[in-house]
Design a protein around this nucleic acid. Structure first.
Lengths: 186, 186
DNA sequence: TGCGGTTATGTACTGGTGTACATATCTTGT
DNA sequence: ACAAGATATGTACACCAGTACATAACCGCA
């Protein structure tokens, strides 16, 4: 209908295209998984020609690394904010509950990205560095309110609750999550 | 050296080849991830010709489904045994600790397989059924000793401890794991 | 023993992939 | 205004994947 034998498409002035591409990559990963993420799919999602990918990124691995780095950063920022706002231990416990049920479990998009990152990191050293930096940052945020041992344990519980929520057809309610967090930290 | 222009290789009588292929598939998944799992790689790992794959399985998806089903079964069996042997709540708590630090975190092979299953399940309904049956079975085993709410919470904690252990360069010790489990179940 | 169907094997085919690269067009600094 | 370099675009190529299928060898059974 619209295209047919489309001629050369008009060149677009598009600074920050690289950033847009990273965003498109995250969308594709969320939709199709790392396994289903290709140069062509990302390009289509961002509405740019294939060649634009190879111009802006040296390899597909580089795209993935940048995309996951951005994802981890954005989740970590929320983590920091939630816990930074807490003024005492009770508020911190509440912050963790809210973090899990509202932020982490709230968006199926982010949920899937996180799990995809986990498995990709298991095999890619660059991505493993990303997850480790992220874990360290989370723990540091938790240690503003809890001792090191406790921080580590809560971190593991959070991880489990998230994963459980991502996979179960019958995910836990906010109340159940709050109950679990309180129970560990009581 | 050995092959050159190898002629037709002698046909082998090999009942249970199908089962062997499933085992080979698990090895390949552990080594290369689901993304890096191909008919050819599995065939090479099991030392059978490519055509044998398409004879025994209708599709690669079918191979994955059968492989993960076997994996989940074998992990669930250990789960059942550990908790079945516990005679009271204290022993059950100890069983969970041992389960995590010895069985679940013991083998890098199984660990990787589990994470790979998680992400594959996020996108493949057949595999999602596998994980859900597995989750249900775990919870049932836990409910032999704990009420439903507690069972669910422990299940999540286990999941988190395992994932944490799979990704961290600095995994928790058996003592730390025991401490975390006791803390939730105290 | 011979026959039928099950199992095994090699190979061809189509499609999609990452990447390289020649070309075209724009922005920016002078 | 103009050159130079940065950015954009289309296309080609080599490679590897899943799958289909024709052929061959074997087992079990009458």
């Amino acid at each position: 209908m619209s295209g047919g034998t489309a001629g050369r498409r008009p060149r677009r002035h598009d600074p920050e295209r690289r950033e847009r591409l990273i965003g498109a990559a995250l969308a594709v990963i969320a939709d199709h998984g790392v396994a289903g993420t290709t140069h062509r799919r990302i390009a289509r999602a961002a509405d740019v020609p294939l060649g634009s990918m190879t111009y802006h990124f040296a390899s597909l691995e580089e795209v993935l690394a940048e995309a996951f780095t951005r994802h981890a950063d954005s989740v970590a920022r929320v983590f920091d904010e939630r816990l930074g706002a807490a003024r005492n231990r009770a508020e911190a416990v509440e912050a963790v509950s809210a973090l899990v049920s509202e932020d982490l479990l709230g968006s199926q998009h982010d949920l899937v990205l996180t799990v995809e990152l986990y498995v990709a990191a298991a095999r890619n050293p660059a991505l493993r560095a990303v997850t480790q930096a992220w874990m360290a940052r989370s723990r540091r945020a938790l240690e503003r309110h809890f001792d090191a041992t406790t921080a580590r344990e809560v971190d593991a519980l959070i991880e489990g609750l998230v994963l459980h929520g991502a996979l179960s057809t019958d995910p836990m309610t906010s109340e159940q999550i709050r109950h679990a967090v309180h129970r560990l930290l009581r």
